[in-house]
Write a protein that binds this DNA or RNA. Sequence first.
DNA 1: ATGGTAGCCGCGCTA
Length: 255
Amino acid sequence: MKLATWNVNSLKIRLPQLLNWLAARQPDVVCLQETKLPDQDFPREAIAAAGYHFACSGQKTYNGVALLTREAPSDIVFGNPLFPDEQKRLLTATVQGICVVSAYVPNGQAVGSDKYAYKLAWLDALARWLAERLAATPRLVLAGDFNIAPDDRDVHDPDAWAGQILCSDPERAAFRRLLDLGLKDSFRLFDQPEKSFSWWDYRMLGFQKNRGLRIDHILLSEPLAARCSAASIHREVRKLERPSDHAPVIAELAC
DNA sequence: ATGGTAGCCGCGCTA
């Protein structure tokens, strides 16, 4: 079973790339972020024609999350019941007996800003809710754009980024708190190339210079981590013409 | 040095 997450930065713009990537890689479950379109504009026909069911929680211009699944999803939950939020950033469904959560964690803009406080509060509420969900559903996947580089290995220039947004200690502590729930970072279950990143700034030739961060993650609960056989980043997608600034991330489970 | 690029129905904001 292939699980994937991808921040597409506008599903409307990236739909042709998404369809090509689905056909080439055949993931079973895909968590999407930054769809940036209201649910009535979701490309339901194209997704169905590609062979996927879907659930979506979108809004215009900003945010928006979705799930694409080979098997029909059930028990769809919009947002976090513990954290009322106008911003569409969280979507959960049960697929093939697994609780799958697609998350678009707030960026936070700058350490100390109002948006930073919102990010930390959002993550605190996520951890509290996931603790409940894990008690009820031990097989759980949390995948998405976390907007956190968990470790200096995940940063192209750790000295330049030290203490900055996406790398600050409180953000990393919030990430560790998710791991402390019993979740494993699937990417780090395996040896990986040095300087593996999932996001590169559009500006200043960020991708060409590999000035990136690994901020997109697939976290697996223990029963799923025990079955995880591979994890990788589909970096080649970032090389396409008019790419998202994020590359897809994949984890494979032996069934 | 606070730049630069992309996407949004926009006339700045978010990332």
